[in-house]
Nucleic acid binder design. Structure first.
Length: 429
DNA sequence: TCTGGGGTCCTAGGACCC
DNA sequence: TCTGGGGTCCTAGGACCC
């Protein structure tokens, strides 16, 4: 029988912010989405206040003042760095692990003979001690159950002190426990599926687990059928240690302020294409098609307009300059004057590995040059920071750039942001 | 004034082929 | 009078995840 552990950081983004500023201890902290739009992470104190996930920040100003909520812009450099450290520590606990998201990893504990709950505690303690972050651990014979066990650990429904092990629980205990958990908590059951299942009288995890897999397949899909089997302890989802290459690469963002003119949008598009192309080259792929979309603010009372267009590229490419040229052509086809644009995005698709095209690629001296130029561009930007070297099309001012008014320092990723402990500058002395 | 970003998988239906 | 069957590919849309 396989054994999976799911390790999940508690309130990850909010915890990262608290970690480097002791004054925030015990205080309610939220982290906001891009443009300081919505609440995407909440500390325990904020959850206790009943502030929901995803609520627009401007709508909770009253509560924020009343309770002294401290808000931060998303500091992805900080979170990514802390995430890598967590993964590094987890690597000491299992030879095979899947990094599922920035704050969650699955560990393969198959064949581990020790007391699993104690092992989970050891993981928790080491991450707490070495990194100052709290995690919860769920242990079970399938990934879906490990996710659920993690949920139970977090909510204190089963297990102790942030670790829940389904493997040593009896069938009777599991049934009783699952009867108390809403089916919407199951991995893969979102709001829509929860509503549709309610019509069939399925509202708890236990009821879904007892449902007939064939019926579920007929009424829903093979995906949900697999979920039912996983809930019954039959492992259908394997650990994916190596993340497969992306099949599409997106870069889209809302603007810090509306953009009206085509020239402004061209700068935006050039910037987004550059970022997408960078990601493309990171996985050594070429793009065969490009999609562009632009839209106005769907929440505003102003006239709305949105359009997207996909074009096949005459030759698959990784060259930012080529991609920008095509993107600007596409923009000219979908742009309409007189609208307040609020968001745009670029998607690269029909991706294929560079090496598959290499035979013809390097036969052509122009393409060989392009490849070397792009490689150099990436090296320079890696060394000197994103955008240090860029196409002129991106512009200089970028007034539309996203708002990040509440950004914390790059505590672990920037010399200027490094926290200083116990010493004063010359002037203060 | 102010409402995120980036992905995956599956299904149904139409076009087209032999 | 009689009007096939099976397969692939593509796209749009729906659902989910963090």
């Amino acid at each position: 029988m396989p054994i999976f552990a799911l390790v999940d950081c508690n309130n990850f983004y909010a915890s990262c912010e608290k970690l480097f500023d002791p004054k925030l201890a015990g205080k309610p902290v939220v982290v906001l989405s891009n443009n300081d739009g919505c609440v995407v992470a909440r500390s325990a104190e904020v959850k206790a206040l009943g502030i929901p996930m995803g609520v627009p920040w401007f709508k909770i100003q009253k509560e924020a003042r009343q309770y002294g909520i401290v808000a931060f812009s998303s500091n992805y450099a900080l979170y990514a760095d802390m995430s890598n450290r967590v993964v590094e520590v987890l690597g000491q606990f299992s030879p095979s692990l899947e990094v599922y998201s920035i704050d969650e990893s699955f560990l393969d504990l198959t064949g581990f003979l020790q007391n699993l709950a104690e092992y989970g505690q050891a993981i928790r303690q080491r991450i707490q001690q070495w990194l100052g972050l709290a995690v919860c651990v769920g242990i079970a014979p399938t990934k879906t159950l490990a996710k659920l066990a993690n949920h139970c650990a977090k909510k204190g429904l089963a297990g102790q002190q942030g670790v829940c092990d389904f493997i040593t629980m009896t069938e009777a205990d599991l049934s009783r426990l699952f009867a108390r958990i809403e089916v919407g908590e199951v991995w893969g059951v979102g709001r829509r599926l929860q509503a549709r299942q309610a019509q069939l009288g399925i509202s708890t995890v236990q009821q879904l687990r007892e449902a007939d897999p064939d019926l579920i397949r007929a009424r829903f899909s093979v995906v949900l059928e697999r979920t039912v089997r996983e809930l019954r302890g039959v492992s259908c989802l394997e650990l994916e240690e190596v993340a497969p290459d992306k099949q599409q690469i997106m870069c889209s963002r809302s603007f810090g302020q509306y953009v009206y003119e085509r020239e402004g949008l061209e700068e935006v598009i050039a910037t987004y294409v550059s970022r997408a192309a960078e990601k493309l080259r990171q996985q050594s792929s070429l793009a065969g098609a490009l999609t562009l979309f632009i839209r106005t603010n769907p929440f505003s009372q102003e006239p709305h307009y949105q359009r997207s267009l996909t074009i096949p590229l005459p030759e698959a490419t990784e060259d930012t300059r080529v991609l920008v040229t095509w993107a600007v052509k596409v923009l000219r086809r979908i742009y309409r004057r007189g609208f307040a644009y609020q968001k745009a995005g670029v998607m690269l698709s029909e991706l294929r590995p560079q090496k598959m095209a290499q035979a013809s690629l390097f036969a052509d001296p122009d393409i060989e040059r392009s490849h070397r130029l792009m490689a150099t561009l990436d090296i320079i930007n890696q060394r000197w920071g994103r955008g240090a070297l860029r196409t002129a099309a991106e512009g200089l001012e970028k007034p539309w750039q996203m708002k990040r008014l509440r950004l914390s320092p790059g505590y672990t990723t920037d010399w200027e942001g490094m926290p200083v402990v116990g010493c004063r500058s010359e002037g203060e002395r």
